[in-house]
């Protein structure tokens, strides 16, 4: 079920003018920033469908930018995102693309920080809700509405078993789980949504107990 909470419908509290194009776009930007895990220096937004046609009118450009800058959906600074970006020395560009058969409001964001670059394909699916469709080209879906762990690791037997054992022992319940790998035994990414707020000691426990785990990012844009 895409929509479960009363606050999905009576909400979010946001700055206008469009929940798909403004609030959803801010959330996509927020997710990109959290996946990047560091201050972005350069960002490219490639917009498709309705996003491409009307992004300027709805302020989608300002909203995406505000999101990448870490502003929340109800920030009255969203209309001034260009100035905020300038003051942070963030370079950005917008382009229109044809992404084929995707949701009408879809954007491919490529963000570069000091140490890494991430690519997120995400859609604003209505009412301010969003769904990531791909992460770094891998078909991983998540919304960021629940605390979401993104685990970068090597594809090894028993990886998921170890992760779920640690989560269970630390009192976390897994709500949604997906693993994608580039090749057998190669680079892999696991996206794990949990019901409880993630504490730092969980991140430490995972890092400490799983040698093939290269990196962890936490995404949560409730």
């Amino acid at each position: 079920m895409k929509y479960q909470s009363a606050f999905d419908i009576i909400g979010p509290v946001m700055v206008g003018p469009s929940s798909s194009h403004t609030a959803g776009a801010v959330r996509i930007g927020n997710i990109v920033r959290q996946v990047l895990g560091e201050a972005p220096r350069r960002v490219k937004f490639e917009l498709a469908g309705s996003f491409a046609e009307t992004y300027r009118g709805h302020g989608t450009d300002l909203a995406l930018l505000a999101g990448v800058l870490g502003l929340p959906t109800d920030s009255e600074d969203i209309p001034n995102a260009e100035q905020v970006a300038a003051s942070h020395g963030l370079q950005y560009a917008f382009a229109k693309v044809n992404l084929g058969q995707v949701h009408p409001n879809t954007v491919l964001v490529t963000a570069t920080g000091d140490t890494r670059t991430v690519q997120v394909l995400a859609s604003s699916i209505g009412g301010g809700k969003v769904e990531v469709q791909e992460l770094d080209g891998l078909p991983l879906k998540f919304s960021g509405e629940r605390p979401t762990l993104i685990l970068y690791h090597e594809d090894r037997k028993g990886f998921l078993a170890t992760v779920s054992r640690i989560l269970d022992a630390s009192g976390y319940n897994i709500a949604r789980l997906a693993l994608e790998r580039r090749s057998r035994g190669g680079e892999a990414v696991t996206v794990c949504e949990v019901d409880e707020a993630v504490q730092e000691d969980l991140v430490q426990a995972l890092r400490g107990s799983i040698p093939v785990l290269r990196d962890i990012r936490l995404v949560y844009v409730a």
Binding site: I9, P12, V13, M14, P17, S18, A23, E76, G127
Partner: peptide, 21 residues
Amino acid sequence: EVNAGMGRIVATPTAGSAGIL
């Protein structure tokens, strides 16, 4: 109008339709 002016509203269910409720 507040919505169109990039003011604060509650999406019900969306911002475009936030006036009715």
